[in-house]
Structure formats: C-alpha cells, structure tokens
Design a protein around this nucleic acid. Sequence first.
RNA 1: GCCUCUAUAGCUUAACGGACAAAGCUACGGUCUUCUAAACCGUCGAUCCAGGUUCGAUUCCUGGUAGAGGCACCA
Length: 608
Amino acid sequence: MFTKEQQLIEEKIKAYCKTSDIALAELKWQSIPFSGEWGFATSFFQTAANEAKLGKGNKVPVPQKAQEIAEQIRGQIGSVEGISHIEAVKGYLNIYFKTSDYARRVVDEVLASGLDFGRGAAKRERVMVEYAQPNTHHSFHIGHARNTILGEALARLVEFAGFETIRASYPGDLGLGVITVMWIYDKFYKGQEPEGIHERGQWLAKLYVEATAMLEKKENETPEETAKREEYEAERREMYRKWDAGDESVRELWRVTREWSLEELRDILRMLDVKMDVWFFESEVDEPSKAIVDELIAKNIADDERSQGGAVIVKIDEKLGLTKEKYRTNVILRADGTTLYLTKDLALAKVKFEQYHVDRSIYVVDVRQSLHLQQAFAILKLWGFPQAEKCHHLGYGFVSLPEGAMSARRGRVVMFKDVADEAVRRAFSVEAEKSADVSAKDREKIAYQIGMGALVYSMLSVDNNKDIVFDINEALSFDGRTGPYIQNAHVRANSILKKAGWQAGKYTGTQVDKSFDYELTKHEIELIEEISQFPQKVQQAAEEYRPLVMASYAYELANTFHSFYHAVNVMQTEDENTRNARLRLVAAAKQTLANALRLLDIQAPDVM
RNA sequence: GCCUCUAUAGCUUAACGGACAAAGCUACGGUCUUCUAAACCGUCGAUCCAGGUUCGAUUCCUGGUAGAGGCACCA
C-alpha cells in the first residue's frame, strides 16, 4: 500500500547511484520489522558487495560499506511528501511515514472497499481447483477433511487474488472397493440400511471393513472356511463382471448405494460451506478415456505392446529426451484393455483444457500421488497442451492417528462428522460458561461456527507438505493459536462498534473528521501496519498456493488486535476526534479480520 | 538400488538469503467495579551432524544421520 512513496524514493536512489557511479543492486523493499515503528526499508549489502567486486571501496568490510552507502543516499533524498524522516542504520535505509497521513490512507481504503478490501485485480486467467475426491461407498474421514479444507481455502484465495476460479470434485465411484461394498450389502444386508444420511454413509464404511475381513485369506483356515471364502470371492468377481457389462440390476444397486455416499458428501460440503461448480465422476470418465489411448499411440507418445501380450505404455523419460531417470515409464491401458487411474486423469485433463478452457489446473491430492501426477503432467506436455506447464499438484502430508496410520480396511478411522459434532458440543459447553450475552436462539449457530472454526484452522495452520498426527484435543482447542482466537478478535471489535452505535455511513461519510492527528500509540501503529499488509498476503498465498500464509497472517492480525484492545480503551477515549479515529481503526480491523477468516473458510461471528 | 518430502524450545508449529529466529501448548508469576479473561503482560527455553557457496545461511549446494512416502498393468 505504500507504493507511491516507495516508487518515488526508488527513482531518487537510482538517479543518485547513476550519477555517482554506484553499482546499485536491485532494491528489495520490506516493512520495518521493529514493533511500533512504521515505514518501509531496504538494505545495501548487495550493492556494497557489488562495489567490492569492482575493486572499489579499499577493502572496507561489506556491512560497513553498506552503511556508508545508506548514509550517502539518505543525505541525497531530501524531503518527500508523506514521509516524516529517513534514517540509515546497520546498512539499511529506514523510511518512516507521517503517521497521520498513512493511518488515514489505510483506514480509508479498508472502509471504502469493505468486503473487497484486499481483492486483487482481475488476472484474465481461469483456474480450476480439483479437491474433495473421496471414493464413494466409503465414508468421509478426517483425512478427506484436510483435503477439502485445503482445497476450499485455496480456491477462495486464488479467486480473491483475481483469478476466475472453478471448483471441481472428482469422486471415485468405481473399482473393486465399490463392488466389495455392493456385494456384501446385496448378500447380507439388503434393506437394513439405517435412516440418517451420515449414519448410512458410515454404515457403508463398516460394511466394507466386514467384507474385507470375510474376503481376506486367513492364516489357519479350515478347508470349509477356504471354500466359503473362495465362493465369496467368485461372487464378487461375478458382480464386477456384471457391473462392467452394464447388467441392469447390478447397475441399479450401484446407483442406489452410490447415491447414499454422495448424499453424505454433499451434506459435508454444505457443512464446510463448499459450493462445487463441477462434478466429475470417475465412472463418467472411464469410457471416454479409452479414446485418448488411440490418440496417444497415433501421436507416437504411447507404445502399443498389446501384440506381444503387453499393455499400452508411455516411456516418458525417453519421449522427453531425458537421459536421467525422472518420470520413468507408466501404463495407460492394461493388457486386458481396461483403463487405469492415469488414463482417466489424462482424459479428465483434456476435458478441463478443452471444455472448461482452464489455464491453470490445481490438483489437491495426497502427496503419495506425487509421482503419478508428475507423470500425468509430463504426458500432457508431450501431448502438446501448453497448460501442462501450469498444472500444479498441491500435495499434502497425510493425517494419521496417535495409534498409527488410518486404515479404512481395518476400520481404524476418525470420521469427519464425528469430530465436527464433538467440536460443536465442546463449543456449546464453553459457551454455556462464557457467553452470557448470546441469546438462546443463537447459541447453537454460534457453537457451530466456533467448533468448525477450531477444526478448520487446525487443518490450515500446518504447512501442507507436513504430516498431521490428529489429536482431537489439539484440533478442538479454543485457546491460543486457534480459529476461535481469531474469531474472538472479530467479536471484540464488533462489540466496541456496537457500543459506539457505529454506522458505516456516519463514519465513512463527511460528517466525521477522519484524520489521525494525535500521537498514535505503538499498538495502533502495529495494528494499522498489520492491516495494510493484507492485500499482499492474499497475493502471496495465491501465488505460492499456500493457505498457510493466510492462516499465519490471520493469527498475527488477531494477536495485534487483542494487544491493542487491552492497551487502548477506545470508548473511554476523551477527545472526540481521537475516539472517532480509533473507532474507524477498529472497524477497519474488524473488516480485515472478517475478510481473512472468509478466505480460510471460517465464519466470523459478531458475538460469542 | 533410485527418487521425493521432513528435521527449529520439553510438545505442536512459524520465519521472500539479511537487523535481536516468531508463536501456541506446558511450567511458573501477574492482570477482570473500565469496549466479553475463548484475552492480555512477564519469566524459562531451540535451528539434526559435517563440509561448501556467500559480505552474510534455519533458508541455497554436497555428503551423512533419523523419520515418512513413492518407484509400469492398485487408486
């Protein structure tokens, strides 16, 4: 937000260095890192090093030389509008704002932009974020939640940063796992499904566990057991065959049970406030994907080894002309003519590029599939899609439990719905002791917002490439660096404004003196500084595809606000102009907190 | 065997190659007749090891150690 002054000063520095023959390095600006100080800064270490390399400077050590240059430049800049003073310290040039001007500018912009404060300029690029790809006929566990939350936060970030954004879900609704559940249901549990959406979804996951156990070869099987197991196995195979052949009764069974899972998924997305734009189903991509195999053979990208009883493969490294092993070789069509995951991903990418005109394609997928996706991107490049360069795998470490890895097969999973319910229960009980002024009718809604806020933030506050050991007590903590902490800052800002009878029109219109012509405290300066950084944090998070950047920022902002709240009593400020200025600052902080929380897929309650 | 990721305080995590490595939890000590203490203030405490590049390395490179994951007809 300080580009105007920054540009002016940068030009002055460049002009001076040119006339004085100083080998100026590229200037990198940062905000002054000391708390309670205010402005922007750059260093001259690189410039000093350049000078030293040119043999100038008579072997003066670099830090000392940098300081000399900084002092020299400081003497040359003169006065600049909006800048109070400039100092040269330890090789840095620190440029301080006139507090009143800068404070007013930041607060004015936030209040004028409102919900749009921080929104980036339109980028003329369309981005598709693919996330929430659970398999049907299973339930939605906490690992799926990490995927979905990460994907949604990312989608919100790139959208707000200025990209046209499409949200896509790609559920896996076919394969042996699906058939296994259908088989056991059909054989032993037909008509016994429970009532509720989530109960039924989770019940399917239980059936899967049971079926897997039945079909698994055991150590000391009796001959009868072996025969039984083989019989079951044959039934399952037969069902798979029928499904593949399009047998109407098996297809109907599939449609019905699949819908149970999708109902659950849709409800979970609703709980997380996720609105998908596009649904791709694996079953719908399966058949068309066979067509691309021929195309890739015709283009000499794939090698058809079927005549020798082999598969259709792509020797990726060879085709790319790589001498070192990197992408290796992968199969795109089995010897029996059926497709694989890779085949479908390639076909889906083609649809994304050609039908949805996607410029950038982001895949939020478990880090274990990294090689697979790199292979897919490499094949897309060979295929001639320029968008292949802008395909990005946002991998994330998996979520395990204190007792070890989650395993759907063994039934050792933590269901998202159970955790979410527990989160709401806990928030509700804390509310009972702390939220005297929340009306009874709002209690439930707010407990929901708080509980989910805690859960969502716990998933976003760890960098995506790190594994998470899921501890429910940590994930649902409401104290310290958590979602509710940030929400509480928003609530406190709101409660000040409420008490003041804040109305946007009154304080943003012409009736109120908007200047900050008083001595700002350290806490106010820090708060304004923090608010002013929001737009660039949005851009950074979107460019790096890292929701963590926003999660960290939101915490810092809330932390700064809480400190301000304790140090400065807004409503007891005697001077009316000062009080109004502070109220406007509080409103700006509230708005920025709300915008940041929104990008994190966390609600911002007004009371809690 | 090859490849990828990770290693920061007792625990969980931050930190565009730059100024005193930042927080939360835990422990201990303070702060509610004042805009809600889901908060604030204070104390204790850390860059896996060895080299290298650089004026400067938690950050980049090489090699170790430890952990996790992946390597063609699973997804």
